[in-house]
């Protein structure tokens, strides 16, 4: 219910659909924080309305996506300067529906320790499970959570990888429901590929997940890039839909982290400090589902 929609979450731009998806699907009806909305496409671009009140919602086009918000004056969208640099290739991927909280999806995206078990032979291997200590920081200027100096051995880090490699990762939580991963490019020494995840909450425990890739890769076909992302995401979805409760616990005690979970700990604390309620166990005594 929308009485659980806190002001921080409400003031965020939320992904609606990628540009091609708008052209292909509009007009269509969908949900934004349990509120039915209608997305239309006209000569002057996409228009989005609430179906309950008829109110027009703000629309933003950026990074190959259409965004909207319930708040008439949303906070500025996060910056990804790499979108304006030449050389990388952009591939949007999705959407995939997932029956859990958008915040659980983001937390899973920030997690290194599951690679050997959930993505064996691709993003990890059971012979190399250790998570080397990394640094987590809150970047005050942009109010984002960053994890840097994350390293992990990966058998097949990207679609274009031909062999296993020690990969360097940086994670960035740009919004409660958006995160970006910077990872060393197999195609170009010293450069980073970007993978992003944008989640739209349909309800508190159901969401639609869009992923994008911005990569130094001229070789792989679109199809193989999509297939690679898809395979990984379907492996994560089995986990995500079977985490109990579906709402993300923010208070300590309900789940027990270790040092490898430093990013998740910082993410939960950051959400709590911003008073985020939507998609969390906050205000729900003894959640079980």
């Amino acid at each position: 219910m929308t009485d659980r929609l806190d002001s921080f979450t409400r003031s965020q731009w939320i992904v609606i659909e990628d540009d091609a998806g708008i052209v292909r699907r509009a007009p269509f009806e969908t949900l934004l924080f349990s509120i039915p909305i209608r997305v239309a496409n006209g000569p002057d671009g996409p228009r989005i309305h609430r179906l309950d009140t008829g109110e027009a919602l703000p629309v933003l086009r950026r990074y190959g996506y259409v965004w909207s918000a319930l708040d008439p004056a949303p906070r500025p969208l996060f910056e990804v300067p790499e979108f304006d640099e030449a050389g990388r290739r952009f591939t949007p991927c999705g959407p995939v529906g997932v029956k859990t909280s958008a915040l659980r999806v983001i937390e899973n995206f920030l997690d290194l320790a599951h690679f050997p078990f959930v993505h064996p032979g691709i993003l990890g291997t059971e012979s190399e499970t250790e998570v080397i200590p990394y640094r987590v920081e809150i970047r005050r200027d942009v109010d984002e959570v960053w994890a840097v100096d994350c390293g992990f051995f990966q058998p097949k880090a990207m679609a274009a990888s031909s062999a296993g490699a020690q990969v360097e990762y940086r994670y960035r939580v740009a919004q409660p429901c958006s995160a970006v991963l910077y990872k060393t490019s197999p195609g170009r020494a010293g450069a980073f590929d970007l993978i992003g995840i944008l989640v739209r909450p349909l309800h508190e425990t159901a969401c639609e997940v869009h992923a994008w890739m911005l990569m130094w890769d001229e070789e792989s076909s679109d199809e193989s890039l999509l297939q690679f992302q898809q395979e990984i995401f379907l492996q994560d979805r089995i986990i995500l839909e079977n985490q109990i409760p579906h709402l993300l616990p923010l208070s300590a005690g309900m789940e027990i982290p270790t040092r490898a979970d430093a990013t998740s700990i910082a993410y939960r604390r950051w959400l709590k400090n911003h008073g985020v309620i939507w998609g969390t166990c906050e205000g729900i005594p003894e959640v079980t589902a």
Binding site: F117, V118, I238, I239, E255
Partner: peptide, 25 residues
């Protein structure tokens, strides 16, 4: 429910006399 991050332990993998959680092992 795994005490770590809540994964259903019924998805776990039995290894001898131990149960390994499917999410982070």
């Amino acid at each position: 429910r795994c005490p770590h991050r809540g994964m259903r332990l019924s998805f776990g993998i039995v290894k001898g006399d131990r149960l390994a959680c499917r999410y982070h092992g």
